[in-house]
Amino acid sequence: MIAVTAVRLLAAADAPLLAAPYYRGGDPGPIVRSLAHVPELLEAAMPFIGVALGPSGIPWRTKELVIVRVSARAGCRYCVQAHTAVALDAGLTRDEILALRLAHDFRQVFTDPRERAVIAWSDAATSLTPPDPQTRAEAAEHLAEHELVELTVLAGATLMLNRLATMLELPTAPSTLARLNELALA
């Protein structure tokens, strides 16, 4: 299948000068290859995305709860598929991922009150209104202030990428799709 995107995904030969460093390790993936059209934006976005979505003081598994959940609620096929694979690597089970992807009630699958608070906070982050009192109380009980800040920014950064990937119809890597198909998670 040939993926059709809304913009060309720039190949290494077409990479603008400020974008070239992101291609040195091989194909940098469709997010970089699309953002490369605006190299100064790529230069600013990648460090931010790296800090927001990458390793930090918050455990990897916790961050993937937010990313998969927010992406599922935002209806982002690309981000859900890409981060389903990452979530598996971070140790989440198939059932947990399906619950994050709205296939089941997450409270039936996740029993850790801290993780429940994180997922409820993620749900609130995708709504247009402030968190309800119960969500806020649950978050305050289980999450430190700095964690609330970081997880909220993570949810926001994920939403930004959700919009980018959905609007530009970014293609999921064939290797990722193959892996998800084996687990009936595509």
């Binding site: 603008p16 400020l18 100064e40």
Partner: peptide, 10 residues
Amino acid sequence: VGTDLLITRT
């Protein structure tokens, strides 16, 4: 229009 020698859109 080529992009390989693009610096910034700004």
